[in-house]
């Protein structure tokens, strides 16, 4: 991975008597697409606002290129933001909105013109110069907001849930577009979202946050396949989370049976939790499996059916393209590498 650009060191933030960030440590690299992911109130937006300079941290440091910038005002930072509701200037047209930052820097008029035109082209708004921003569609406003930030050639672009206000189809489109733009301009993007699918499909690195603490940092594959705890596992995608006991390396027991797995490094007989993704469970005839149960419900989800199977100890959620009649007796199987063992966390 390339050089570290932003370094957050034991960052804390209190609002009145509430601590919203409880010590954030994070390295963000050059040219990286980082997503801060978590439910609302997890501190992801606060983290972003501290990096932008709109909030001062209560404790800790924000290093930018090795220099502490936590006291530097936003207008002196080489960072630009795409705001949640775009925050376009309603009294300026598309061109003037994009040119705002350059005009403040008193840049030469022809240079401004060149840069604005280039950036508008980049975001696919060529020829929209004179349009009134208040009359643009959500997706177009979004593009203006991105252009307005990018035209300043920041080292980092912050995006605060920028796709939240768009409909599902447009959102998909913009996801791809954003990723493309990031590759093209080659700068760091820090993206805040509560949408796990968005995070997984766009990012180089996903940072999962909950209650002001980073739960896990990793590639989308890591986060999905190897969640570090129950929160990450349940927040990212559907999952069956089962309390279990690690008998020894590569052997775990739950629901009264022993299963081979691929995880090791736990203490003998340590209490752990196991994640099995719904798509990793196969439904077979009862006599072919250890775990047996009855189909409780089946819901059509488009690509797959979501089936809930009631067993002696718990209900399992399974995704499959096949159809099973409710009430049918079935067996459930999964392979050793479908089982992911996590440390147990005390969760209220």
């Amino acid at each position: 991975m390339s050089n570290v650009l932003i370094e957050l060191k034991s960052l804390t933030k209190n609002f009145e008597d509430q601590q919203v960030l409880k010590g954030i440590d994070l390295n963000i690299h050059e040219n990286e697409f980082v997503t801060l992911l978590g439910p609302s109130g997890c501190g992801k937006t606060t983290t972003l606002r501290i990096i932008a300079g709109f909030e001062e941290p209560s404790g800790g440091e924000v290093l930018f290129d090795g220099v502490d910038i936590s006291k530097v005002p936003p207008y002196k930072r080489e960072i630009n933001t795409v705001f949640q509701k775009y925050a376009l200037f309603p009294f300026l047209n598309v061109y003037e909105n994009v040119a705002f930052g350059l005009k403040i820097k008193k840049m030469d008029k022809s240079l401004i013109d060149h840069k604005v035109k280039k950036t508008l082209k980049l975001v696919g708004l060529e020829g929209f110069d004179k349009r009134d921003v208040t009359r643009l569609s959500g997706g177009q406003q979004q593009r203006v907001a991105i252009a307005r930030a990018l035209v300043n050639e920041p080292k980092v672009l912050l995006l605060d849930e920028p796709l939240g206000a768009l409909d599902a189809k447009l959102r998909k489109e913009m996801q791809g577009e954003l990723k493309k733009i990031q590759k093209e301009v080659g700068i760091t993007f820090i993206f805040v979202t509560h949408d796990q699918e968005e995070a997984l499909s766009m990012s180089d690195t996903v940072v999962v946050m909950h209650e002001g603490i980073i739960q896990q940092v990793g590639t989308p594959e890591d986060i999905y396949n190897e969640p570090e705890n129950r929160f990450v596992a349940s927040f990212i995608g559907e999952s069956n989370i089962i309390e279990a006991c690690m008998l020894k390396d590569m052997l775990v027991s739950f629901d009264g049976y022993e299963f081979k797995c691929v995880d090791k490094g736990f203490k003998e007989n340590e209490c752990v939790e196991v994640v099995i993704r719904p798509e990793d469970i196969d439904i077979v005839r009862p006599k072919e499996a250890q775990i047996k149960g009855t189909v409780k419900s089946i819901v059509f989800k488009g690509v797959h059916h979501e089936i809930v199977v009631e067993t002696e100890h718990r209900d399992y959620t399974i995704h499959t393209t096949d159809y099973y009649e409710p009430g049918l007796k079935v067996g459930l199987t999964f392979g050793p590498d479908d089982i992911h063992v996590m440390y147990r966390m005390d969760w209220e």
Partner: peptide, 23 residues
């Protein structure tokens, strides 16, 4: 006035005086 417009101006390099007059 939506406060995020002030933040947007600051974000784009306007100091407090410039933010006041321009936004």
């Amino acid at each position: 006035i939506d406060h995020s417009l002030h933040e947007a101006a600051m974000d784009l390099g306007a100091n407090k005086v410039q933010t006041f007059w321009r936004v």
